[in-house]
């Protein structure tokens, strides 16, 4: 099943995020089950909110109908996000893994729909001068593919200082992956934040470590 495969994939990058696969019909065929979707929301909901990703057709209809049947207080913290299932799911999982709140998980999932995830568009138009910058060369074989990129984005999320890598938000998994950085390419890690030095140093060290890969 697609949903189970996606959860398996996302769990490699976000082992602690709560993810429930609710794909397929009750008898395991391709399709959608109202009971599975409602049950999945209940299982996923710990009170902080639930992001629901679905692909097409009856999955969307069933999810929207399921919302109608929820109690008002539960419904108020469930968000259906229209985003590519795999990319959105992985991005949302990583955002949840680092303790992001409902809106930041929603934002991460939406970033997969092609919208620039930058929190402030003004900053993107006129980037503030970087106070700290470090340029490192990627050493591991496959560069910043999904799992290292997730480690990188998760580490970036642990710092309050905003850090960019080649101009992209370092804490956004999809933004980092979209750079397509492979072995031998250089990454410029920068922060315009006075407290950004530690973050830039740690992220630079992580890239230079090669993520424990060859």
């Amino acid at each position: 099943m697609i949903a189970e495969g996606l959860v398996d994939l996302a769990r490699q990058m976000a082992p602690h995020a709560r993810m429930i696969a609710a794909g397929g019909t009750d008898d395991g065929q391709i399709g959608t089950s109202f009971a599975k979707v409602v049950g999945g929301i209940e299982q996923a909901d710990l009170g902080e909110g639930v992001v629901l990703l679905c692909d097409l057709g009856s999955a969307i209809l069933t999810s929207e109908t399921a919302l109608d049947f929820l109690d008002d207080d539960v419904r108020s913290r469930v968000r259906i996000v229209d985003a590519p299932l795999v990319e959105g799911g992985v991005a949302a999982a990583v955002a949840a893994e680092v303790g992001g709140d409902l809106e930041s998980v929603v934002r991460a999932a939406r970033s997969a729909a092609g919208a620039e995830p930058a929190p402030s568009t003004n900053a993107a138009e006129s980037p503030p001068p970087s106070l700290v910058t470090r340029t490192v060369t990627l050493v591991n074989k496959d560069g910043l593919h999904a799992r290292p990129a997730a480690d990188f984005a998760k580490l970036a999320s642990t710092f309050t200082a905003r850090v960019t890598v080649n101009g992209k938000d370092a804490s956004s998994l999809l933004a980092v992956m979209s750079l397509g950085l492979t072995r031998g390419m250089t990454a410029q890690i920068s922060s315009a934040d006075p407290d950004g030095a530690a973050a830039v140093a740690a992220l630079g060290d992580l890239l230079e470590s090669g993520f424990g890969e060859e």
Partner: peptide
Amino acid sequence: TTLISTVGGAAGPLYGTAFL
């Protein structure tokens, strides 16, 4: 509620919502 849980596909949510 029964149609939504048992019809499946798009028709389940659609008829279910209609009756609801």
